[in-house]
């Protein structure tokens, strides 16, 4: 049974990804800051297949030890889903520098360092999948999300070069770019803004976390053997 590590796993999109992977026969190590009751309930349901590590990705210097712990405790890692991210919004001119730093640290530096260490297990076995969760904001832009958008663009760039680097070791690296979804990260979007996002979609709706989880699941299957360096956009057509 293949083991997949999912960051930001205890709620929202990460949680939906864990559920999807468990239903499809994977073992999952979920990493997150605060364990939620819904994640614990899922663990009771999948006692031998779903595990967790509590970790705050602000602690870059502890990522190496975390990776070692995961490998020695749970075994060989097949997949890594870099989903954990912060979504601070605000106009750049008034955004505090500590928040700018934190966004870059958690959304860019942390997944890069985690990938560095987790990919070692894949390199030795010449088999693995890395999926970076970006956002449509990386390419479209959005008022008040300039730093967040910069971090998501960075992750897409990381995907493309790493795909070239690791291809020869039979490791694929891809990006999944969701549009606006109904999660705690977008909970500040209300009423008219939400309606305008919906109206922009040719399907007149928003993508769901389950739609995105399905795509992540697909990229882990043998059907995606020859897909690397790509971006799959899941936004109900909003950016078409």
């Amino acid at each position: 049974m293949d083991l997949v590590v999912v960051t930001g796993a205890f709620k929202g999109l990460g949680f939906a990804i864990c559920k999807h992977l468990l239903k499809n026969g994977y073992s999952v190590v979920g990493i997150g800051r605060t364990l939620t009751s819904e994640y614990q309930e899922l663990q009771e349901q999948y006692q031998d297949y779903l595990f967790h590590e509590v970790f705050d990705f602000n602690n870059i210097e502890d990522i190496k030890a975390l990776s070692k712990k995961i490998t020695s405790k749970y075994g060989v890692i097949y997949g890594l889903v870099n989903n954990a991210a912060l979504g601070h919004d605000g106009v750049l001119a008034t955004m505090h520098e500590s928040q700018i730093e934190e966004l870059i640290r958690v959304n860019v530096q942390a997944p890069i360092v985690l990938t560095k260490y987790i990919s070692r297990s894949m390199l030795i076995r010449q088999r693995g999948r890395i999926i970076n969760i970006s956002s449509v904001i990386a390419t479209t832009g959005y008022n008040g999300l300039s730093v967040y958008g910069a971090t998501k663009s960075a992750l897409s760039g990381f995907t493309r070069s790493l795909a070239r680097e690791l291809g020869r070791a039979n490791i694929t690296v891809n990006t999944v770019a969701p549009g606006f979804m109904d999660t705690s990260m977008t909970s500040s979007l209300k009423g008219e803004k939400l309606d305008s996002i919906r109206r922009r979609s040719p399907l007149n709706r928003m993508a769901t976390v389950d739609d995105v989880a399905n795509s992540v699941g697909f990229l882990l299957t043998p059907a995606a053997d020859n897909i690397t360096g790509s971006t799959i956009t899941i936004d109900a057509g909003s950016t078409a």
């Binding site: 297990s121 390199l123 030795i124 680097e165 020869r168 070791a169």
Partner: peptide, 11 residues
């Protein structure tokens, strides 16, 4: 890439 694999094996 071979050196990356070597360092990973040794780790």
């Amino acid at each position: 890439l071979g050196f990356a694999i070597l360092v990973a094996i040794l780790d």
